[in-house]
Nucleic acid binder design. Sequence first.
DNA 1: ATCACTTACGGGTGACGTAAAAATC
DNA 2: GATTTTTACGTCACCCGTAAGTGAT
Lengths: 280, 280
Amino acid sequence: MIDTYLLEHLVAFKKHRTLSEAAQALHLTQPTLTRSMHKLEEEFGVKLFEREKKRLYLNETGKVAAEYAENILRMQETMEEQVRLTDRRHKTIAVGSCAPGPLLELTPKLTAAFTQMAISTEMADEQSLLTGLNNKTYQMIILTHPLEDELYYSKHCGSEQLCACLVSEHKYAYENSVTFAQMNGESFLMVSEVGIWDAIVRKHMPQSKFLLLSGSESLIEVADTSSLPTFSTDLSIRILGMRRHRFSIPFADEDAHMDFYCICLKSEYQHLAKWFKQLS
Amino acid sequence: MIDTYLLEHLVAFKKHRTLSEAAQALHLTQPTLTRSMHKLEEEFGVKLFEREKKRLYLNETGKVAAEYAENILRMQETMEEQVRLTDRRHKTIAVGSCAPGPLLELTPKLTAAFTQMAISTEMADEQSLLTGLNNKTYQMIILTHPLEDELYYSKHCGSEQLCACLVSEHKYAYENSVTFAQMNGESFLMVSEVGIWDAIVRKHMPQSKFLLLSGSESLIEVADTSSLPTFSTDLSIRILGMRRHRFSIPFADEDAHMDFYCICLKSEYQHLAKWFKQLS
DNA sequence: ATCACTTACGGGTGACGTAAAAATC
DNA sequence: GATTTTTACGTCACCCGTAAGTGAT
């Protein structure tokens, strides 16, 4: 079988058209490449070059060989990439979610369940999550509905209730609940990374403006000095705590309550069985 | 880049499941393979195996690597095949023809025109000839008509006149010509490798029987002891000589005269220009 | 004189074998 | 004791560099 270095020398010669330039590019000397080209001809038992006294050309056969060499080397590179990638995959659990709430709740549980493994979480729209699950960018994804397809395993993993987070001066601050209709038209402070909630609030409160802040830290800081309503959820309150000087009033609308489902490929289920069982 | 021998060792281990058996298969010793497997892990910078004291297993990452290795080696093999094949193609002129006559006439000219090259000739039906020309199995083909397509270059390269080859006792033995109609119903001795002529005689003499012999030598031998008519052509007579004790009477029918065209791919024309020019 | 390839020779890396150890069955 | 992997050490092949040579520009 042809040695890899010979293929590298060959493609370098094809690319640079002369042995001396190819040698430079490879950080080798000309004589080395001369020898390699002869060795290639010897191993194939076939002429690959036309030799004029001063110049060396690939003949038709040589061109065929060089093209194959390119493909083989390309394949070697993707091999290295893929091997390193699958190795990383076996050392990290990547979870994609359509909303931040479930990640807040589940990440601590994940780190406890998969000691030795790194946990990486990410938010994306449903389409990206699905393709990512299929190409194993994610081991698990979190959606607002189960997937009934034969390929997937789905399990309910929690729910979230959207609340309006109001200063005490707000007219609804002491209600038991509010509705989207009641709040429609008010301007909200909102973090930009809220996933699927973004579409819901924009749909039900089309008259409202949403002032986006990136990161909940900056939101909290701004909210402390502002009387504008913000959003919170039962999950965010349970995990991050209550917001200072504000009351969280749940939205009564049906769409303000969301169920979440944790989903993996059936083919990967065995590795994750322990996790799903403790998700009761 | 990973050395080829490491890939070979890896696929051998995947195939034989144990280092010792793989070593046997490769005509190497166990320690060599141990070293190779460690070297692979080192070069990828990744664990590829699960080690129990007595046994070595590929882990998930290792399986991925081994599959890539298999593909790469397969590609190397096809590379060697294809390189040797294209080399042979450049050393031989392969000509396909729809009838034997033109080959009889042209082969000596080909060997004279392409000194240093081997000439290989073959008969096939038009469809096979065309696909063979397109995939470069043939450098040239001979058909009964030119190809007007942009892809091909065609040139008239001779013609052939079919004759009935009759013993002197035959009633038409002294005629200047015969017709298919006159001979229809008579049984002919015929070689099986006559290409397109086979269809013609069967079409115009549907009442006749054709007793097939393989190879013109056996035909001549049998014909010497038989009074059954056979076929000959002007070409066969000019090149192989007259048949003993027989008269060749040309068929007067239009279909008994055939023109031949030598055809190559336009993309290959430059290599064959000298040949086509002397075909005047 | 310079450039491009070839030939000849010497050195050092590394692929392989031998030998032996460790561990399991 | 047999089998399998691992470790240690010596050797030989071969890949590369240096130096010198041949033509062509």
